[in-house]
Write a protein that binds this DNA or RNA. Structure first.
Lengths: 187, 187
DNA sequence: GAACGATACGGAGCACTGTTCCGCTTTGTC
DNA sequence: GACAAAGCGGAACAGTGCTCCGTATCGTTC
């Protein structure tokens, strides 16, 4: 078994998580590593040791909220009027999450900087939840059956990019329209 | 009136346009300025003098194609079966343009780097075209009347971000679904 | 509680990029 | 040919990601 972590290492990891959360709301998830290090009062080496890529740090900071979103899926499915209503509600939660964090949506798509693991984490955790909601809605005859969770989630993520730079752009409206487009005609 | 441009300046501008086009297909619109300067065999100062921001350069390089897209609007409107069909066809052209240029869609949204002017140019040139197509389709009772050209174009731009990094993601499919969502029910 | 190996830390340093600035060169004109 | 204006090149500066290694701290063992 792996050796127990040193006390200062555990302490630092907590400090870093707190500091990163603070900096993320202030400067977005693209904030310079140095800024996070300074906020936490540690060196950059420390950050990189605990979180090899920026995505790892982001994932750690937001893990709780992603978890909550994932767990809301089944609950919504059992409490909503219809599977499609549940899907709508769930996606609303998902969008809430994305737009609250400056630049998170953008970071998720980023092919260049090492955000790969962030992408994978979201997919692994939320993909199956989305899948079950989609299936249920298909089963109920509410939506077409050729939409994959991956493309839907990614599309929604894309639509949420850069929400706060122009008041004329409201991603929720477009997402709502996109969901309309998923429904089958003449019920 | 302003004095005539010097011959070498004109020459350089052409050289730069050619070189930039070359580099953009090779390395995307985010390619380092130095790379473009090297390709053109000029100094970086020269680039910045001719094109103060990267967006200016991108705009200049793609101006013809944007123009073509803009001019296609009215033509499609008069030759298609319906305004909505014209809208679909036009958006297809728009998407063609975006996905052919690596990273262009992403660059257009970028709030951080100075792509503001690119954004504005697109909007100024293509917005009215999109508007006329939308209006015609509304007039014909094909789509709802509460969709603004700006949000639609921007949403489509967003959906096109990062097309080529995952074969499972096909922006055209989602865009098609989004357009479905625009249509009015039970005709 | 002293000594010592393992673990973790800090931040200087390197690589890469955008952007500016200014001495030098080329151009067009008289 | 001379001269001012226009244009050019690239060194230099600033901001960022990421690595590396000498140093400090921790936990354990005696």
């Amino acid at each position: 078994m792996p050796p127990r972590k040193r006390a200062d290492a555990v302490r630092n990891e907590q400090t870093l998580l707190t500091a990163a959360a603070e900096v993320f709301v202030r400067s977005g998830v693209d904030a310079p590593i140095r800024e996070i290090a300074a906020e936490a009062g540690v060196g950059m080496g420390t950050i990189y040791r605990h979180f090899p890529t920026r995505a790892d740090l982001v994932v750690a900071v937001y893990r709780h909220q992603v978890e909550a979103c994932a767990e809301a899926g089944p609950v919504l499915l059992s409490t909503s009027d219809s599977p499609f209503a549940a899907l709508r509600a769930w996606i609303d939660l998902f969008v809430d999450f994305l737009v609250t964090k400056h630049g998170l949506a953008g970071a998720m798509q980023s092919d260049s900087s090492g955000f790969q693991s962030l992408h994978e984490y979201f997919l692994d955790r939320l993909g199956p939840v989305c899948e079950s909601l989609l299936s249920a809605a298909v089963e109920a005859g509410e939506i077409r059956d050729d939409v994959r969770p991956f493309e839907l989630m990614r599309g929604i993520g894309n639509l949420c990019i850069g929400r706060d730079d122009d008041p004329r752009y409201d991603p929720r409206r477009l997402i709502s329209l996109l969901l309309n487009g998923l429904t089958v005609r003449r019920p």
